[in-house]
């Protein structure tokens, strides 16, 4: 499964697994938009994510913009390695709220 969903504090946490690309980013998009439609803020956990392409990044940007319009939040958790490089390359590390660990998330 490309993601696992859990509840953490008052957030829905979507843990992304393995590699997100054009093949599976529509699944991630569908789930992220469903969470936001229910009115929940979301944590996107990158701790078990090894790769993300521009379709995955575009999905996160779309969800981030929707969250902002609904006065919800979308926070990236534990980005490292290749996925962090992509965020830095696109300067989105300065756009998305990011925390190093789930325990750093404020209630």
């Amino acid at each position: 499964m490309i993601y696992q969903q859990t509840t953490y504090l008052h957030y829905q946490c979507l843990q992304l697994n393995g590699e997100v690309d054009l093949h599976n980013s529509p699944q991630v998009r569908k789930q992220l938009l469903a969470i936001l439609k229910k009115g929940d803020s979301v944590l996107v956990d990158f701790s078990t994510l090894s790769y993300i392409d521009s379709s995955g990044i575009a999905t996160l940007v779309e969800a981030f913009n929707i969250a902002k319009n609904k006065q919800l939040t979308l926070t990236i958790v534990a980005a490292s390695g290749g996925p962090l490089q992509v965020l830095e390359l696109t300067n989105l590390d300065k756009v998305f709220p990011m925390v190093a660990n789930l325990t750093d998330v404020k209630e």
Partner: peptide, 16 residues
Amino acid sequence: NLTEPGGLGLQLIHQV
């Protein structure tokens, strides 16, 4: 603007 959709893949190719 990177927060707008479209063209990100091509931009990444040129950057890398």
